[in-house]
């Protein structure tokens, strides 16, 4: 009798089922809804209406601006932090890193509610600075995702390369721009991917900050709330396309650096 043996193929079955149920099928449903109308007929109407409606285009641009600003602010804050934690001889560096990561362990809603209270105390009326509040909220939320990959990359940076640069006549500025920065690119790319993409779509933060402006996420939500699956799906699909393009632009060229990215996560 042939004995039954597990092969790698069979071990893959649960994962394949999972992927089909939760990734492929939902995507197929979204694509189906996006290109059909209420009676189930194929149509490009949803696509056209997105690009002809000034509101939706405006929301897309606004979301992009917020995501870019949040990513830039995160990068500006996270790089020095990661650099200091990774390169200095601080004995307590892991503890400090932990402090930056710690907020991730607290429930997201709780964090934002707390932040909202603090901002209310500082600003009085939150609705006066919707853009600023959104940026603050998202920066607060996504900072750890920027710090971690940067920290990991900078930690792996070979000290002797920096010494070699100094030895060859580079002053501290030249060492940074010619060696440290180029060599930390994988971390930067990974940090950007992990911050920009969620910043593009997250609308819970805005919602909770009593923000009246719409971004992409809230736009989709508003269509779904009134059971307009077709337009909602189309917007989701467009957002999906935008994110794909951004991912290709930032991560496409260095596939083999994947191991350097966010290894800590």
């Amino acid at each position: 009798m042939k004995r039954f043996r597990f092969s790698r193929k069979q071990l893959c079955i649960p994962y394949a089922l999972f992927l089909i149920c939760f990734v492929v099928l939902p995507l197929a449903v979204i694509v189906y809804y996006a290109f059909t109308d209420g009676s189930g007929r194929f149509t490009l109407e949803n696509l056209l209406s997105f690009f002809t409606n000034g509101n939706t285009i405006g929301t897309l641009c606004y979301s992009a601006v917020i995501a870019v600003v949040v990513t830039a602010v995160c990068l500006l804050i996270a790089y020095p932090v990661a650099y200091i934690l990774a390169r200095s001889s601080l004995k307590r560096a892991p503890v400090l890193l932990m402090l930056f990561i710690l907020p991730m362990w607290i429930n997201f809603t709780l964090r934002i509610t707390a932040l909202k209270e603090i901002l209310t105390v500082l600003e009085g009326n939150l609705s006066l600075h919707p853009f600023l509040n959104t940026v603050i909220g998202m920066t607060y939320d996504y900072l750890p995702f920027m710090i971690l990959p940067l920290y990991t990359t900078l930690l792996q940076l070979d000290e002797s390369l920096l010494e070699a640069a100094k030895d060859l006549g580079a002053d501290p500025g030249a060492v940074f721009f010619r060696v440290t920065l180029p060599l930390s690119m994988p971390g930067i790319v990974s940090g950007i991917t992990m911050t920009f993409l969620p910043a593009m779509t997250n609308y819970v933060i805005l919602d909770m900050m009593y923000n009246s402006t719409y971004i992409m996420g809230s736009l989709i939500g508003s269509y779904f709330n009134i059971y307009d699956w077709h337009n909602g799906s189309m917007i989701s699909l467009i957002l999906f396309a935008v994110i794909c393009i951004v991912s290709l632009l930032t991560g496409g060229e260095d596939q083999d650096d994947a191991k350097n990215r966010g290894a800590i996560l």
Binding site: D158, S160, L161, E163, A164, A165, K166, D167, L168, G169, A170, D171, V179, P182, L183, M185
Partner: peptide, 20 residues
């Protein structure tokens, strides 16, 4: 004097060539 101001150059043990 910091190393960048010395007319001295080093060949490192593990070469330390810039990988990028």
């Amino acid at each position: 004097l910091p190393p960048n101001l010395r007319p001295i150059n080093t060949v490192f043990q593990r070469y330390a060539l810039f990988p990028h």
